Simulated assay, not measured.
Amino acid sequence: MTDSVWQGGGVDLDAYLARVGYRGDVAADLSTLRGLHAAHVDAIAFDNLDALFGRTVVPLDLDSVQDKIVRQGRGGWCLEQVVLAAAVLDRIGFTFTAFAGRTRIRTGNKVGPALHVALCVELDGERWLYDVSFGAHGLHEPIRLAEDARLDGDWSFDLVREPSGEHVLRFLGPEGPAELYGFTLDVRHPSDFEILNHFCLTHPRSPFNHRMVLQRTRPEVRHLLAGSTLAELRPGRAAAFRELDKDELLSAPEEIFGITLEPGDVQALRKFLDGP
């Protein structure tokens, strides 16, 4: 195939499908789009650990991302996961663009930096929001990208359009709608990801470089670890919270989030938890 800016020609599709446990047919159709989305979020956690290990670079080239997430069994933060997901969709033959959103959950901030990146897939005359990396409150499958679209089920979502023109993705929980992020469809390119990556890794106001943030989205339960606080979400219930001690924090990546850490990474995490 002719390679594109999304590097579909360089993705190891068989290895990715094995990593996420996808066993269905693969084609540029809605069934595949839904199946890949669900499999990805079930298997691959949001993981900011590299930012805590004193590493000054989190590489976004496809080879590095595949090595980390597919071969090593790690998670990744949204920029890494979008690089991987985009390459997979490109390899299969989907048509899509990337955009950036401003996170609102827990902050309500409509004018903060647009740090979250997701994909808009065009298929059979419709557009679909394909977002595999928002974490515990995020989508489990694509939602049609249209005003007043809904995705109903154990985990429900909708999209609303504000007078400003921004789309807002909302999580419809038992306590009412929670705004996740607002976005426009201004096209972003992989070169834009590098700037966002640098901010997330180095800026003093980055939400990702001073505390552990791990998230996993599974059908029956979702987990979010922010600092030492673990939130557990189940369909139709209010979130449950508990504080983890140091030993629990050290084991949480593998035991709760399914993240495989090398011995050196375990030691780096132990050093971070011990503090300066």
Score class of each variant (00 low, 15 high):
residue 1 M to L: 07
residue 2 T to Q: 12
residue 2 T to I: 12
residue 3 D to Y: 03
residue 4 S to N: 12
residue 6 W to E: 07
residue 7 Q to P: 00
residue 8 G to P: 04
residue 10 G to T: 00
residue 10 G to R: 09
residue 11 V to K: 07
residue 12 D to V: 03
residue 13 L to R: 10
residue 14 D to C: 08
residue 17 L to G: 09
residue 19 R to F: 06
residue 20 V to D: 02
residue 21 G to Q: 05
residue 24 G to P: 01
residue 25 D to E: 15
residue 28 A to S: 15
residue 31 S to T: 15
residue 34 R to Q: 10
residue 38 A to T: 15
residue 39 A to W: 03
residue 40 H to T: 09
residue 40 H to G: 11
residue 42 D to P: 00
residue 44 I to L: 11
residue 46 F to E: 00
residue 47 D to K: 01
residue 48 N to A: 04
residue 49 L to C: 06
residue 52 L to M: 11
residue 54 G to K: 10
residue 54 G to E: 06
residue 55 R to K: 13
residue 55 R to L: 15
residue 60 L to Y: 07
residue 60 L to C: 08
residue 62 L to C: 07
residue 64 S to I: 02
residue 65 V to K: 01
residue 65 V to S: 07
residue 71 R to D: 14
residue 75 G to D: 09
residue 86 A to G: 13
residue 91 R to L: 04
residue 95 T to C: 13
residue 97 T to Q: 12
residue 99 F to A: 13
residue 99 F to K: 06
residue 105 I to V: 15
residue 106 R to A: 13
residue 109 N to S: 14
residue 111 V to G: 08
residue 112 G to S: 12
residue 114 A to G: 10
residue 116 H to N: 09
residue 117 V to A: 14
residue 119 L to Q: 10
residue 121 V to F: 04
residue 127 R to H: 12
residue 129 L to F: 09
residue 131 D to Q: 09
residue 131 D to Y: 06
residue 132 V to I: 15
residue 134 F to H: 10
residue 138 G to I: 01
residue 138 G to Q: 02
residue 139 L to K: 03
residue 139 L to D: 09
residue 141 E to W: 02
residue 142 P to A: 13
residue 142 P to Q: 10
residue 145 L to V: 07
residue 145 L to Y: 05
residue 145 L to C: 05
residue 148 D to N: 12
residue 148 D to W: 02
residue 148 D to I: 02
residue 148 D to A: 15
residue 149 A to P: 05
residue 150 R to D: 02
residue 150 R to W: 02
residue 152 D to K: 11
residue 153 G to D: 09
residue 154 D to Y: 03
residue 154 D to H: 10
residue 156 S to W: 01
residue 159 L to V: 13
residue 160 V to P: 00
residue 161 R to I: 07
residue 162 E to D: 14
residue 163 P to R: 13
residue 165 G to K: 12
residue 165 G to R: 10
residue 170 R to L: 05
residue 171 F to E: 01
residue 172 L to P: 04
residue 182 G to C: 05
residue 183 F to A: 06
residue 184 T to M: 07
residue 185 L to W: 02
residue 189 H to C: 01
residue 190 P to W: 05
residue 196 L to F: 06
residue 199 F to R: 02
residue 200 C to K: 00
residue 202 T to K: 02
residue 204 P to A: 06
residue 204 P to V: 05
residue 208 F to T: 03
residue 213 V to C: 08
residue 215 Q to H: 04
residue 216 R to S: 14
residue 217 T to E: 03
residue 217 T to W: 03
residue 217 T to P: 01
residue 218 R to K: 14
residue 219 P to N: 10
residue 223 H to Y: 14
residue 224 L to Y: 04
residue 225 L to E: 04
residue 225 L to A: 04
residue 226 A to Y: 07
residue 226 A to D: 14
residue 230 L to S: 07
residue 232 E to I: 12
residue 233 L to E: 05
residue 235 P to G: 10
residue 237 R to Q: 15
residue 239 A to M: 10
residue 239 A to R: 14
residue 240 A to T: 14
residue 241 F to R: 14
residue 243 E to R: 14
residue 244 L to I: 05
residue 246 K to M: 12
residue 249 L to E: 03
residue 251 S to K: 13
residue 251 S to I: 04
residue 259 I to V: 14
residue 263 P to K: 11
residue 265 D to W: 11
residue 267 Q to K: 12
residue 270 R to V: 00
residue 271 K to N: 11
residue 274 D to L: 05
